[in-house]
């Protein structure tokens, strides 16, 4: 029987036998990926399921007794004002962070690709922020933004932009921006390196053809670079969105979610509710909601982005 014939039969029984044949034929492949699959299930699948289970129970951290409460935690969450404030704060945190990292990363990558002096030095130098532990970067930025001793205030005062030192991280209106800046600083190198790799894979003769077709630099960027980089940008921003969404250490180190919870995101709140306040069940419910948000986002994002072709 040819392969085509084998796969074209449709009745149930032969489908089963097809599956068996398929398994037999690929037994070695399945065996080889089995350890990795089991490992992933253990470290990824199990915690997800356990979090979901936990969200259905009242489960104080200082007790071993769990009480089944069904969807009560979820009802509590969607009926609370805090949840919607957290969504807004998380939304702006992710949006500003990812936008900043993407734009800055793209800008740096485009320039690092060009024929500039000291290109190798800059390529390495731009990776440094990514190699520093996030918490340390966060501490550095806390100092930079310090109202009395920080460099930022010193520079702004010197330039005459401000008349007296401002406490960015203590101001509920702008504290989140102070944290976003640190996050962008940390996350930009990753974007720049990924974009640079993407840029280097674009054939040079496309730019040459475009130049001969009359395309100025901006046209080349708009009609060659961006479309050619689309899939790379898609993957990088998707990853960056997920990482920024779940980012904890920068916010926690710089502000601990304050002042008056204006820099708290869903993840900070989960930590506060679940681990600080010891309400594991409610924390788990928040986690499940966060997980579903990300899942939904990833699905919609990939669908929208992979739909249709490009147009001029």
């Amino acid at each position: 029987m040819s392969l085509a014939e084998e796969y074209s039969t449709t009745d149930g029984e032969s489908r089963l036998s097809q599956s068996v044949t398929h398994l037999k034929r690929n037994r070695r492949a399945y065996l080889l990926i089995a350890p990795a699959a089991v490992f992933l299930l253990a470290v990824v699948g199990y915690p997800i399921l356990e979090t979901f289970r936990l969200s259905l129970y009242r489960s104080p951290a200082d007790s071993t007794i769990e009480t089944f409460v069904g969807l009560q935690h979820y009802a509590e969450i969607v009926n609370s004002d805090i949840f919607y404030r957290l969504l807004w704060q998380t939304g702006r945190w992710v949006l500003a962070g990812v936008a900043g990292k993407t734009l800055l990363g793209l800008l740096i990558a485009v320039h690092l690709k060009g024929d500039i002096k000291g290109r190798k030095f800059f390529r390495t130098a731009f990776l440094i922020p990514w190699g520093i532990p996030y918490a340390i970067s966060a501490v550095v930025f806390r100092w930079i933004e310090h109202p009395q001793f920080g460099y930022l205030n010193a520079v702004l005062l010197k330039l005459g932009v401000i008349e007296q030192g401002i406490g960015i991280l203590g101001n509920p209106d702008i504290a989140w921006l102070g944290v976003v800046v640190a996050d962008i600083w940390i996350g930009t190198p990753f974007m720049a390196i990924i974009f640079l790799a993407g840029l280097q894979s674009i054939p040079q003769d496309l730019y040459e053809a475009a130049a001969i077709d009359g395309a100025e630099r901006w046209h080349q960027f708009r009609y060659i670079t961006l479309p050619q980089l689309k899939s790379v940008i898609l993957m990088a921003t998707l990853l960056s969105t997920i990482w920024t969404f779940v980012s904890f250490d920068v916010i926690w180190t710089m502000t601990g979610g304050g002042p008056i919870s204006t820099t708290a995101t869903l993840v900070i709140h989960i930590y506060q509710v679940g681990l600080q306040n010891g309400n594991l069940g409610l924390g788990a419910a928040y986690s499940v909601i966060g997980f579903l948000f990300l899942l939904l986002f990833a699905i919609v994002y990939l669908r929208v982005y992979t739909r249709g072709g490009d147009e001029l």
Partner: peptide
């Protein structure tokens, strides 16, 4: 600049814009 020379070039690799019809 090449943009202003009013020339057209055919490349060995064709250099067609892959994302355009």
């Amino acid at each position: 600049r090449p943009q202003d020379r009013n020339i057209a070039m055919v490349f060995q690799s064709y250099a067609l814009y892959p994302h355009m019809t």
